[in-house]
Computed example of a mutant assay.
Amino acid sequence: MAAYRFIAYLTLLALTSSVVFATDPSQLQDFCVATNDPKNALFVNGLFCKNPMAVTAEDFFANGLDKPGNTNNKLGSAVTPVAAAQLPGLNTLGISLARLDFAPYGLVAPHTHPRATEVFTVMEGTIYVGFVTSNPADNSANKLFTKVLKKGDVFVFPQGLVHFQLNVGKTPAFALSALSSQNPGVVTVGNAVFGSEAPISVDVLSKAFQLDANVIKYIQSKF
């Protein structure tokens, strides 16, 4: 009886393991179209790996996050990323970092990270943050979660949800964001909808936003 139970346990474990290891890894870019011609292979889902014997401590080191980004722009904000491109040792580890700087009343516009959850920590200043839930199953309104954060406060933006950060103080502010992907991706809502190349049809946007076509054209001109 004991032997039978042990065999049954091993069978169940094997079946469970086959399910666990049958899934694909998460994507690290929007898409990766397969090709059999290496000459046409422009991007890979990640980065090539350095020979372990050639790795040094410098591969796991980056500096410069003590320096504010340039916020002299229309939104009054700057993002300084620390991902695998800036810190090679992050490759395959599934994490990245960014410094966000804000001029007084500077804004990081509504955007999403399609491949990462973001943990946002205020280092200086007072920052108003929020995110919006995805479309509810019962077709009710999307719910907005907001909070005013001060130095030392932490807020989480779930993966893929639209979120924003606004400096509501009269002095510059900055924060650090940790992200659960080495390549989280950024989709800025306004740029994607109104500034794509080629542009989305005015008819589509006019109906979607219930606005006059001339208003849509004016908004598109801003992007």
Rank of each mutant, 00 (worst) to 15 (best):
L93K: 10
Q210F: 08
T80M: 03
F157S: 05
R5Q: 14
P38S: 11
F43K: 08
N63K: 09
D66A: 15
G89V: 03
S221K: 08
L90N: 09
T126Q: 12
F120V: 10
T92I: 08
L47R: 15
T188V: 13
A2E: 15
I219R: 04
K143V: 13
Y218F: 04
Q182V: 02
A178H: 01
I95C: 05
F61V: 09
T71Y: 14
V55C: 02
F120T: 10
N72L: 07
K207E: 15
Q210S: 12
P25Q: 14
L97V: 02
F174G: 14
L205T: 01
P68H: 05
A173K: 01
D24S: 13
G106Q: 02
N91R: 12
F102Q: 07
R115I: 03
L211A: 04
I200F: 04
L144F: 06
P81E: 04
A3D: 09
P136W: 15
N214S: 14
N36G: 13
K222W: 02
V132Q: 08
L90V: 03
Q165Y: 05
T35E: 10
T16C: 11
L211G: 11
V33S: 04
S140R: 10
F157C: 03
S77Y: 00
F43S: 10
D203M: 01
T56F: 01
S18R: 14
V193L: 06
L149I: 06
P136V: 09
A22T: 12
S201V: 00
S17L: 14
A173E: 11
Q29H: 11
K150G: 15
V55Q: 05
I216K: 00
F48E: 11
A98D: 09
V79N: 06
V162D: 01
G94W: 00
I7T: 13
A8Q: 14
N191E: 14
F223P: 09
P184Q: 06
L15T: 00
S177H: 08
A54K: 15
S221I: 06
M1N: 10
S201R: 02
G106M: 06
K150V: 08
S17Y: 11
S26L: 11
F6A: 13
Y128S: 14
N45A: 10
V154W: 01
R5K: 15
S196G: 10
N167L: 04
A54I: 00
L179A: 02
G160R: 12
R115N: 06
V186M: 13
D30W: 11
F31M: 07
H111E: 03
V202W: 00
I219V: 06
N183D: 12
L149D: 11
K67V: 06
P158N: 12
K147G: 04
K207T: 13
L107Q: 12
Y9H: 12
P104F: 04
T16N: 05
G185H: 06
R5L: 15
E124S: 09
